[in-house]
Nucleic acid binder design. Structure first.
Lengths: 117, 117
DNA sequence: TCTATAATTCTATATTTATAGAATTATGGA
DNA sequence: TCCATAATTCTATAAATATAGAATTATAGA
């Protein structure tokens, strides 16, 4: 991921409503949620949400698809992974020891990671 | 890291000059760089840089110390790690498989991570 | 103490972002 | 085709951010 793209993604998440939308979509998984449901869930007007969803979409953090009259939004995990990679490599540039272990919230995480090693 | 703090850190990095400052400070390491050198290095006026450095500082991504007449800024790796943890846990909430392996740039990284497992 | 240096804070201005009602577009069913 | 629903785009306005010169503060050396 290049720097311009990273800045766009960072800016997309640097706002309360959008970060909440993203979190909501992450928990919703690949099935996603229709725009209206997201707006209702956050208690914001449809036009405001539409603005934020477009922002997240431009940033590559969510994707959308039409399904009958609804437009379904879902988290773009590849996009998020791209951002995390950018930050990690940026942060660790030349000094990898300073940013790892990246996550160690509870034993389960360590076990999970052990699998991939 | 809580959500307000994460938004501040994301916002701090979501701007070209500040992201460049942070990258510069990461490569500079714990010794850091004086404010003037950072400004000169980026070709921006001192007052502009001061504004951005204060922003990064508020966000917990850099720290400063006075050294004679200079003020030395350095990357706060703990702060950055906090942000990465927040994002990773947020992104992976309920579906950890979607965001790992987080980094796999070259064999060295895998070896490095293997040590921590 | 006086002067030069390093940086910040003050101030004004320009730019970008956010909010939300009104108007518009797209879809599906009667 | 006509109507209701789901969303977006348009528009205006408010709020936050970014830029940079001028003034101020802090430190060190002569």
């Amino acid at each position: 991921m290049e720097i311009k793209q990273a800045i766009e993604a960072l800016g997309a998440l640097a706002q309360e409503t959008r970060l909440e939308v993203f979190r909501l979509l992450v928990t919703a998984g690949p099935e996603g949620l229709p725009a209206g449901e997201i707006a209702e869930s956050l208690g914001a007007p449809a036009s405001t949400l539409s603005f934020h969803l477009a922002y997240l979409s431009r940033a590559g953090l969510v994707v959308s698809r039409r399904e009958s009259r609804s437009i379904i939004y879902s988290a773009n995990f590849d996009g998020m992974r791209g951002l995390l990679d950018f930050l990690t490599q940026d942060c660790c540039k030349g000094r990898p020891e300073m940013c790892s272990p990246l996550v160690e919230p509870k034993p389960a995480a360590a076990a999970r990671r052990a699998k991939t090693c």
